[in-house]
């Protein structure tokens, strides 16, 4: 009995992964084939990128400041308080900037995509698109994935810059650091590789955010409850995928 139950759930998990892979594959193939809808792309870039700036920026400033404070306290225990600028910039650019930026965008965008596509599904708007000879993958899914992948690196650059700025603000205003020295140390410890890894992470996170939002919305079940479930699943699964992908990329890039 137990074996049957385990087998069934394993099979179901494989089936779900297969469906998701097929969905992603279809979206990517349609993305490179015309017809294209550039107006939809631009609109999605605006919605995902521009409108996420405040929440991503605030998150970065607050977290960068808190990080600097903690490093200062921790470092002071073994006379290493001067490491604040170096550790802050590495922590922000390698991890906190992309991950927190990704999570905030996931909360904002994956949920909105799932709710929008889910509502379009239950009100037959997706069927209507098909009867009007417009491929929902080209019109709805591909523009969202493309926009998220292109825009996330920019958001993460902003997130990194503001995170470092948050640390600098707190360090110079409260911890007595010299501003010019702090910035010089930051610049010295900031490596091109760190920024590159941060951008790679951002693009991957953007892909997962849009993929999860679209996948769950597109396959939304009936009624308000179905759309609600789709929204929850989109946010939870994109959070998990972001954190897992972050771990994988970090181990690959920095593990050796």
């Amino acid at each position: 009995m137990a074996l049957v139950a385990i087998g069934a759930s394993v099979l179901a998990a494989f089936a779900a992964v297969g469906r998701l892979a097929r969905f992603a594959g279809t979206a990517l193939i349609r993305l490179v084939q015309p017809p294209w809808y550039p107006a939809q792309w631009l609109n999605q870039m605006l919605v995902i990128g521009w409108l996420s700036l405040p929440v991503v920026g605030l998150t970065a400033i607050f977290t960068g400041s808190a990080l600097a404070q903690q490093i200062f306290i921790g470092g002071s225990r073994f006379n290493a308080a001067s490491t604040v600028p170096a550790v802050t910039v590495i922590g922000v650019v390698r991890e906190l900037g992309p991950v927190l930026g990704g999570l905030m965008v996931a909360g904002r965008v994956a949920s909105a995509m799932a709710a929008e596509l889910g509502t379009m599904r239950v009100t037959e708007q997706i069927d209507a698109l098909v009867t009007l000879r417009t491929d929902p993958f080209r019109w709805l899914v591909a523009p969202r994935i493309l926009a998220a992948v292109l825009v996330m690196p920019f958001l993460v650059l902003v997130s990194n810059a503001l995170g470092v700025m948050g640390g600098w603000l707190l360090a110079t205003q409260r911890l007595g650091f010299n501003s010019a020295q702090y910035l010089a140390t930051t610049a010295r410890y900031l490596q091109v590789d760190d920024v590159a890894s941060s951008l790679v992470k951002a693009a991957v996170f953007g892909f997962f955010i849009a993929l999860m939002g679209c996948f769950h919305g597109y396959h939304s079940g009936g009624g308000a409850a179905g759309v609600g479930r789709a929204t929850t699943n989109a946010v939870v699964s994109s959070f998990i995928l972001i954190l897992l992908a972050n771990l994988v990329i970090t181990v690959i890039l920095f593990g050796s």
Binding site: M120, T123, E124, Q125, D127, A128, L129
Partner: peptide, 8 residues
């Protein structure tokens, strides 16, 4: 469509 299914 039954509900109109207009793109809102």
């Amino acid at each position: 469509f039954q509900g109109g299914a207009l793109f809102d």
